[in-house]
Simulated scan of single mutants.
Amino acid sequence: MISRRSLLRATTGIAAAAPLSLAVPSAALADPAAAGASGASVPATLSATRGAVPTGVAIAPKLPLTHLSVNGTASVRLRTESGWQPWRTTPGCSAAPDGRAAQPGMLIPAEGALDYEVRGEGVSVVEINTVDGPQRTVAAVQTRLPMNVPRQMCPQYLSRAAWGADESYRFNPDGTPKLDLKYFKVQTLTVHHSGEDVPVADPIAHIRGIYYNQAITQDFGDIGYQLLIDADGRVYEGAYSDPDAVPVFGPTPGPDGLPLAVNGAHVGGFNGGNVGICLLGNYMQAPPSAAALRSLKVVLARFAATAKLDPLATTEYVNPISGKKATLNTITTHQDWNRANPDAGATLCPGDKLYELLPGIRQDVAALAKKLPPITVPAGK
């Protein structure tokens, strides 16, 4: 029997990102302290770019898939050992950096897919494998969110190094950064879902898939969300902010002494001063897990306390880059941005069953924000 790894070595047209990715495998999460002490062997991401694909034709992937990135307005289905699976339709959680229009597309978990079929004109596809690439060892990882929260309330946390962010994605071939990092006063907090409608067996590998899709395939230069949360309540550092251990916030405070958040790319045209938090999953038919909601509330409360935001208030948002405006809840969602301004891109994110929980989430966050201290940002940043 030919192993997946042997097949990969023999397959042509497959690219491995360099330098190699760093991450902690899911099994290590049961004992994060041990994982940090002993290190872990982790894979680089592999990809095969198809470009535009024919419509209505079964396509055999060039490499064993973990994900399929589909860009354009399309319906997609996968064939597994149990046969053809249901059709899925774009868009998912459409986003873009400031200055670019949000484009339809989706990232599909595709473990075990033997073939795929796309319906739609001008649709491009990138095949992705986040688990079978060459290995590298990381000596230590960060597993507690540095948010000055009592330990019993602090979610388990994976920094970029811990989940395997390949920092080369943020740079051009000549070594210059793709992004000019910008930091802004926090005005709003936006809740997203990632939108996949199949179970995510390995959330760390899925985060790497989202990162590759947004940073490379969509050319954002980084992952668009500032933080992500999985079904077990683990929190993942998203967009790179600076070298220190505190995610999201930049190296210097604003004129009012409050920390400034790194700019992301999670709502088309409305990113500056808008912190995006993405829950993994599709919440159109069912709500998030209790663990994911608990972590979401703690994170929102910490940001609200740190940025001195009222979780129950309405914000007159002004994009510090473009001057675009929107009036909406201070703790809001992706689809609310679209209602306030169609430039944000059509979306049902974060799903009906999460959206209907937002009034109660805001109430709980308001109560938590009064009890817990702000995030501690290192002196001299």
Rank of each mutant, 00 (worst) to 15 (best):
R100P: 02
R100Q: 15
A101R: 12
A102F: 05
Q103W: 04
Q103D: 09
Q103I: 10
P104Q: 11
G105E: 04
M106G: 02
M106I: 07
L107T: 02
I108D: 04
P109W: 05
L114C: 10
Y116F: 15
R119T: 14
G120V: 08
V123H: 12
V123P: 03
V125R: 00
E127F: 06
I128R: 02
I128H: 02
I128V: 15
V131M: 14
V131N: 06
D132V: 08
G133V: 10
G133K: 07
G133F: 09
G133H: 07
P134L: 09
R136F: 04
T137F: 10
T137H: 10
A139L: 13
A139T: 13
A140I: 08
A140G: 13
A140L: 07
V141G: 01
T143A: 10
T143K: 01
L145N: 06
L145T: 05
P146I: 10
P146W: 10
V149H: 03
P150N: 12
R151I: 14
R151T: 14
M153H: 14
C154W: 01
Q156S: 14
Q156Y: 12
Q156L: 15
Q156F: 13
Y157E: 04
Y157M: 08
A162K: 00
W163N: 00
D166C: 12
S168P: 00
S168R: 01
S168T: 03
R170T: 01
R170M: 10
N172H: 09
N172A: 08
P173T: 03
P173F: 03
P173V: 03
T176L: 03
T176F: 02
P177G: 02
D180Y: 04
D180A: 12
L181Q: 06
L181W: 10
K182T: 13
Y183K: 04
K185A: 15
K185Q: 15
K185I: 03
V186T: 11
V186E: 02
Q187V: 07
L189R: 00
L189K: 01
H193K: 05
E196P: 06
E196D: 14
V198Y: 11
V200C: 11
